[in-house]
Structure formats: structure tokens, C-alpha cells
């Protein structure tokens, strides 16, 4: 009897948490479902009832989005921006982080502090900074679409540096370097054959996260009047709500897939790297 009553008690104790999880599921899934309906169901909500619910489902809205003149060019630009941002990030932060670990441990606190500074200057303030500093001093720089990339590097820096730093801390950099150097490896060989493969998971996770941030970034791109995928999505939504919503759904799926890939790619290696987020 005692065993049964304690089991009942355990079940009762789970009612609260279960309700919390259920409510969360409804709150987080409902907008996605309604978006899917709006994207694939060509019936205005006012006319929605028992009779119209199963009619007029189609992929037409999404297909219209693909046919848009600016769909491919803006997507291409955003993908290129993501790539360039990731490359600059790696080229700038990996050597810096390694250098701090190997040669200048004294500077660690300073560098860490500097890399979280972008938290203090959110994108909209950075836009004001562009207006205050680049407009008067280096207008030519802003003409290129790729002028966005360095700002994205800055925006992503707090978490990219943290991920790279965690990757370095997780391996014994000094031993790897000493071993490689004493076997006659050059610095380049050491980096390529000993360090980077061991840091791959943390580099990958920061790259994926950077890519998702760049692909969705709207604030700076729209303020500098660049035609990225996000600004196109916004403009397209105001013209064609169904197509725009279809596009939003696809973006959401792609982002989820990217972040899912990141989790899979990093799960086996280091737990710390796997929990990297924007913050």
C-alpha cells in the first residue's frame, strides 16, 4: 500500500511540471502552426470554417516567393555575407585567442573584456555609430554591400570569441604546440595539423551560429539600405503576405536545421561549446 501511495504521490507531484511543459509547448508551437497554415492554405481566416478547412491547400505561396525577382540575389548576398563574416571572424579571433594563450596570458582579461564590449553597443546603436563615424569620414566604405561584414563580426564577437576560447581551453594547446614544434613542424603546420583539427567542433559551432545571426540580421542591413535576404523578406511581406509568410517559414526551418547541425556536430566533443548561444 505504501509503495502505491508513494507512486501516486510522485505522479501528483509531476502534474505541475507537466502542465508547465504543456503550456510552453502550446505557446511555442502555435505561432509556427498558424504560420504554416497561412503559408499553405489560401483561405482568408474570416472565411475559415468546417467547409473551407480542407480546401485550397497548396505550395503556391512559397513558389511565388521563389519566383520573386529579388529572391535569389538577396539570398546569395546574405549567404556570401555569412561566409565572409565567418572567415574574418576566424582569421581575426583564432590567432588572437591562440596568441593570448601561448604568449600573452597577461592580456587574457583585457581581451575577454574587449570581446564582450559589443554587448554594450547593440546593433541599433552601432547604426548610429556608422552615421556618426563612417558617414562623414569614410562614406566610400559604406557603398559596398560587404561593408556589413565587419559589423557582423563585431556583433557576433562576444559568442564567437567565447566559443573559440572554450575550444582552446578544452585542449592542451601548449603540449600540442611543443610536440609539433619539437618534431620539426613549422607554425603553419602546427596550426593546420595539430591545433585546428582539435578545435574543429568549437570553430564549427561558432561558425554556424554566426551564419544564422547574419542570415536573419535586419537592423543594420535595413539602416544601411542593403538588399539582404532579411530586408527582402520584410519588403516582400508587405506586398504579398502569403508569400512572405511562406518565406518566413522556410527561413525558420533553415535556421533550425543549421543550429541542429551545429548541435550534432559539437555534441560528442565538448559540452561547453555545444551550449554556445548569442549570449
Amino acid at each position: 500500500m505504501a509503495a502505491i501511495s508513494s507512486r501516486i504521490k510522485a505522479y501528483l507531484g509531476r502534474i505541475g511540471p507537466s502542465l508547465v511543459l504543456l503550456a510552453a509547448a502550446v505557446f511555442f508551437i502555435a505561432p509556427i502552426l498558424s504560420t504554416a497554415r497561412a503559408a499553405f492554405h489560401k483561405v482568408p481566416t474570416i472565411l475559415l470554417d468546417r467547409h473551407t478547412w480542407f480546401k485550397k491547400w497548396s505550395l503556391e505561396g512559397v513558389r511565388r516567393a521563389f519566383d520573386e525577382e529579388f529572391f535569389w540575389p538577396t539570398l546569395a548576398l546574405s549567404l556570401k555575407l555569412a561566409l565572409v563574416t565567418v572567415l574574418i571572424t576566424m582569421a581575426l579571433l583564432v590567432p588572437t585567442a591562440l596568441f593570448v594563450h601561448l604568449r600573452l596570458p597577461k592580456a587574457r582579461a583585457l581581451v575577454e573584456f574587449l570581446t564582450v564590449l559589443p554587448y554594450v553597443v547593440p546593433p541599433i546603436a552601432l547604426v548610429a555609430g556608422v552615421a556618426a563615424f563612417f558617414r562623414p569620414n569614410a562614406r566610400w566604405f559604406l557603398n559596398s554591400d560587404f561593408s556589413l561584414a565587419p559589423f557582423y563580426v563585431v556583433m557576433a564577437m562576444p559568442f564567437t570569441y567565447r566559443a573559440i576560447d572554450a575550444g582552446i581551453k578544452a585542449i592542451d594547446v601548449r603540449t600540442l604546440v611543443d610536440a609539433s614544434r619539437s618534431l620539426g613542424g613549422s607554425w603553419a603546420t602546427t596550426l593546420r595539423k595539430a591545433l585546428l583539427p582539435n578545435m574543429a567542433s568549437s570553430l564549427l559551432s561558432s561558425a554556424f551560429l554566426t551564419a544564422t545571426v547574419v542570415l536573419g540580421e535586419f537592423t543594420i542591413a535595413s539602416s544601411l539600405a542593403k538588399n539582404t535576404f532579411a530586408t527582402f523578406s520584410f519588403e516582400y511581406f508587405s506586398r504579398d503576405a502569403q508569400g512572405g509568410v511562406g518565406l518566413a517559414l522556410l527561413t525558420l526551418l533553415a535556421t533550425t536545421a543549421l543550429l541542429g547541425l551545429m548541435t550534432v556536430a559539437t555534441r560528442s566533443k565538448s559540452r561547453k561549446a555545444a551550449t554556445v548561444t548569442r549570449f
Partner: peptide, 14 residues
């Protein structure tokens, strides 16, 4: 991890 990083205009559309 996905939802915290989302924000932006996509969230508004949803």
C-alpha cells in the same frame, strides 16, 4: 537555443 536566437522580423511574422 533556436528560439532565443530567433527574434528579428521572422518572429513578428509568426
Amino acid at each position: 537555443g533556436v528560439a532565443a536566437n530567433m527574434g528579428g522580423i521572422i518572429l513578428a511574422f509568426l
